[in-house]
């Protein structure tokens, strides 16, 4: 192509072309991130996300933030550092949650008839918004990782509390004490997940008595900091524009 020639005939056309590309890019980024993030999240934290009787005070609180801070960190690494768009984490999480909600409604309920109030997804949005705000205000990867990562872990349980609290109230059923969420699990038998592989409230350490969730959240926040750093660099790597020589193959 000629080095001096523009492909458009006016500034107005250039603006129109640019805006059209913006929408096409946004759609593709949204759906591709949705696909990659969803397959990652459902296979690293999915069981805790699928069912209310897996949403306990210990492992759900620990696992979900750690495995879900990954894509937000990576997408931030591209969108902020290249385009100054402070939406990487929120975009990723909104994409994931759109995919999850469509699925829980259309398939978990629509195909196999699990009520939505046993299989709704966890809410990851508060943490994602905080990650983006910290990055935007601080313009620092380190600050976002340390402060944002910790906040991401800490905010997870409060962010889900209004939804999960009614299902954590105790009930007595056939002489046994359990939560309402447990009771849902008893009634909606899942053929692929028998009770012996349900991972909830594992471990014996009860030093902190009733304060299981805060301890789990702090630990989750701590690991989220490390995972943020790691995935920030993954994101940078995935944003590269390098070519390899054709004959290298």
């Amino acid at each position: 192509m000629s080095a001096s020639q523009s492909a458009v005939r006016s500034r107005a056309e250039a603006v129109q072309v640019s805006r059209t590309f913006d929408w096409m890019i946004l759609f593709t980024l949204f759906t591709a991130v949705l696909g990659g993030y969803h397959i990652h999240y459902m296979l690293t934290g999915g069981d805790w996300d699928f069912w209310t009787d897996w949403k306990d005070r210990r492992l759900w609180v620990t696992v979900a933030p750690i495995v879900s801070i990954t894509f937000p960190a990576a997408v931030q690494a591209c969108l902020w550092w290249r385009y100054r768009l402070p939406i990487g984490a929120t975009l990723s999480v909104v994409a994931l949650m759109v995919g999850e909600w469509i699925n829980r409604y259309m398939n978990f309920w629509g195909w196999t008839y699990f009520p939505v109030n046993i299989c709704f997804p966890s809410n990851l949005l508060p943490g994602a918004i905080v990650l983006d705000v910290i990055l935007m205000l601080g313009n620092s990867m380190t600050l976002t990782a340390v402060l944002g990562g910790l906040a991401y872990g800490l905010l997870f349980y409060p962010g889900n509390w209004p939804v999960i609290a009614p299902l954590h109230v105790p009930v007595e059923y056939n002489g046994m004490m359990m939560t309402l969420a447990d009771l849902q699990g008893y009634h909606y038998v899942r053929t692929g997940t028998p009770e012996y592989i349900r991972m909830v409230e594992k471990g014996t350490l009860r030093t902190f008595g009733k304060d299981v969730a805060p301890v789990s959240a702090f630990f989750s926040g701590f690991v989220s900091i490390i995972i943020y750093f790691l995935w920030h660099f993954f994101g940078r790597w995935f944003a590269k524009t390098d070519f390899i020589a054709d004959d290298a193959s």
Partner: peptide, 26 residues
């Protein structure tokens, strides 16, 4: 690329998680 992203959504998100619930049913 739009079609690719769209196809990835259907494959990696919609039908992959859907498989999870089918396995809990049969």
């Amino acid at each position: 690329l739009v079609c690719y992203g769209w196809a990835i959504y259907w494959g990696a998100s919609y039908f992959t998680e859907q498989d999870g619930t089918w396995h809990q049913t049969i």
